[in-house]
Amino acid sequence: MEKGELFDICTYIAASAEKLKDEPKDYGPLRLLEVLSQLATLGATEYDDSFLREVVQRVKEKQGLVMADRKAFYDFLTQLVIRFAKEAKNR
């Protein structure tokens, strides 16, 4: 990860923290998914990590559900954590 990339993510987190106090509660998971996606993108490139690459793709496909289908969005969050837990057993 380059210094500038780390700085950008830190700035994004700071701006999100400030803004989220006034926003709908579902924007919290959405912002965390965005940070996850940014970190996973960097990790996938730096370590040629296929799991993180898959995570980036899945987040991109599913994060829009927060607007369209809240239950499906929550299900996705659960499935994502389960996917991480399965992966953790093999690391």
Partner: peptide, 13 residues
């Protein structure tokens, strides 16, 4: 533009 995006959590990347 890069700085604006990081300061705008809802902005499409």
């Amino acid at each position: 533009f890069r700085a604006l995006k990081t300061l705008s959590p809802g902005f499409p990347r």
